[in-house]
Design a protein around this nucleic acid. Structure first.
Length: 439
RNA sequence: GGCGCGUUCGUCUAGUGGUUAGGACACAGCCCUCUCAAGGCUGGCGCACGGGUUCGACUCCCGUACGCGCUACCA
């Protein structure tokens, strides 16, 4: 078989959302193209007019952008094999239909154009599933497929094959839901006298309980990921491990590594269940290890949405730097940092009841405030030392000072390291809140 | 119903005839510790079932069950 340039494609139809399964299919196509210095094509299969809206198309484009899967040819990008919307390719389909017509492969039935199956056994050589034989000899079980409806609109199987031929696609990497369609597609390639692409059918993504993932199921809609605080590089990593594995027990892999290790034949044949917990964990790992600049960039929308404002970028970064190691998800951020940017933050009732209602709380916090009044320099380490001195002078454990202090200063019983919080908050506010917290 | 694909801890997976069946998430306990995380350690949890083949099956074959997909003038 002559080798041809590697060209893969993602061919979604605009349904109004980018399904996580589709996103993974796109990822695999993108990975394969990148690994082999090939071309990744985005083609929008918008033959169904009722679903073909601008918003629906934009959702696909936004989703792929967010995941970082840049296409080399397609909408907004162009290329020599366009147009990349099926709705704009009528004349091409007409041409191919004529070719089939000339070959005597077509007939008309109630205004619809149908393809007369040669009624043969068809072998699919799949890069993932292996060799599979389909028996299409019985018209009762495998009726001839329709290519065009009476109203002139096209059927998926036909345009999909035509476009893959026209766009010189070398590898069709798609969901396993198309495996049973493949022999029909092969009939079309043969009738058209064209060498078919290589096929690789990836198993589907299911819910945790093994049921199929519909658009409303948890994690199914990629469009919800950004607002839930997922970061693209983490999701890319997680998705690449759904059905594929580097086989060396490693899981945190950056994209460059995945590209290097990725092999179609290493893709599992069994379907994978989407595990939100693990995706969340992996996201946390990325959040934990990423640099502060990137973290800040990702944090911004969440802070803005919560109405938090900051006086200086430096202050913002200082706050984020002490909270970052402690927090697992971006949407939690506002509650953790509000007390640094405003005096108007809520006091958690349970925390107050537990830590500030002690009869000695007032005296202890006053003692602490006094001890810190003239501390110099105002930094975490000396603050810690001074707090511990105060605790022992009072004859209590450090925790009995720490916990009430944290609530007095932040309104909450959980948060960043207390001494760092004091340092960043500044002496004036710290002392003021220590004293106010006892009233 | 027919056809196709699949079945290793709850989940993602490693494993390709001989392993105490390994790792990760989640879960439990412990350590660390100012809370929360992170990290470390420990623990419980698995080869769907039944037949073969073989000296020996998680690994190979057949069947059953179950799951998913296709079976459209959806994509």
């Amino acid at each position: 078989m002559p080798t041809r340039p590697i060209r893969t494609r993602f061919a979604p139809s605009p349904t109004g959302l980018l399904h996580v399964g589709g996103a993974r299919t796109a990822l695999f196509n993108w990975l394969y193209a990148r690994k082999h210095a090939g071309t990744f094509v985005l083609r929008v299969e918008d033959t169904d007019h009722s679903r073909n809206t601008e918003e629906a198309k934009q959702i696909i484009i936004d989703g792929l952008h967010w995941l970082g899967l840049e296409w080399d040819e397609g909408p907004q990008k162009g290329g020599s094999y366009g147009p990349y919307y099926q709705s704009e390719r009528h004349s091409i389909y007409e041409e191919y239909l004529k070719r089939l017509e000339k070959g005597g492969h077509l007939y008309e039935e109630k205004g619809a154009i149908r393809f007369r199956s040669p009624r043969e056994k068809v072998i699919v050589e799949d890069l993932i599933c292996g060799k599979i034989e389909f028996d299409l000899t019985n018209p009762g079980t495998h009726p001839d497929m329709t290519l065009r409806r009476p109203d002139g609109s096209w059927i998926f199987h036909f345009v999909n094959v035509v476009d893959d031929i026209e766009m010189q696609i070398s590898h069709v990497i798609r969901g396993e839901d198309h495996l049973s369609n493949t022999p029909k597609h092969l009939e079309l390639y043969k009738a058209l006298g064209t060498e078919p692409p290589l096929f690789a059918h990836t198993p589907l993504i299911l819910n945790r309980d093994g049921s199929k993932m519909s658009k409303r199921d948890l994690g199914a809609n990629l469009g919800t990921y950004p607002q839930e605080g997922y970061v693209p590089e983490a999701v890319r990593n997680y998705l690449s491990l759904l059905g594929w594995s580097p086989k060396d027990n490693r899981e945190i892999l950056d994209t460059a590594e995945v590209i290097q290790l990725f092999e179609l034949h290493n893709i599992n044949r069994r379907s994978a269940a989407f595990d939100v917990d693990k995706c969340f964990w992996m996201n946390g790992q990325y959040l934990l290890h990423m640099d502060l600049a990137r973290y800040t960039e990702l944090a911004l929308p969440f802070l803005e949405k919560a109405g938090i404002t900051w006086e200086s970028w430096e202050m913002l970064e200082r706050v984020l730097s002490i909270v970052k190691p402690k927090i697992k998800s971006l949407p939690d951020l506002p509650d953790w940092v509000r007390c640094f940017f405003s005096d108007d933050f809520p006091y958690d009732e349970a925390a107050v009841a537990k830590n500030l209602s002690h009869p000695d709380a007032k005296n202890r916090l006053e003692a602490l405030a006094e001890a810190l009044l003239l501390l110099n320099p105002w930094e975490a380490t000396p603050i810690e030392a001074r707090l511990k001195e105060t605790a022992s002078r009072l004859g209590v454990k450090a925790g009995e000072l720490v916990h009430p202090a944290r609530v007095a200063v932040s309104g909450r019983s959980v948060g960043a390291g207390l001494y760092e919080m004091f340092e960043i908050l500044g002496r004036e506010k710290t002392i003021k809140r220590l004293l106010a917290g006892t009233h």
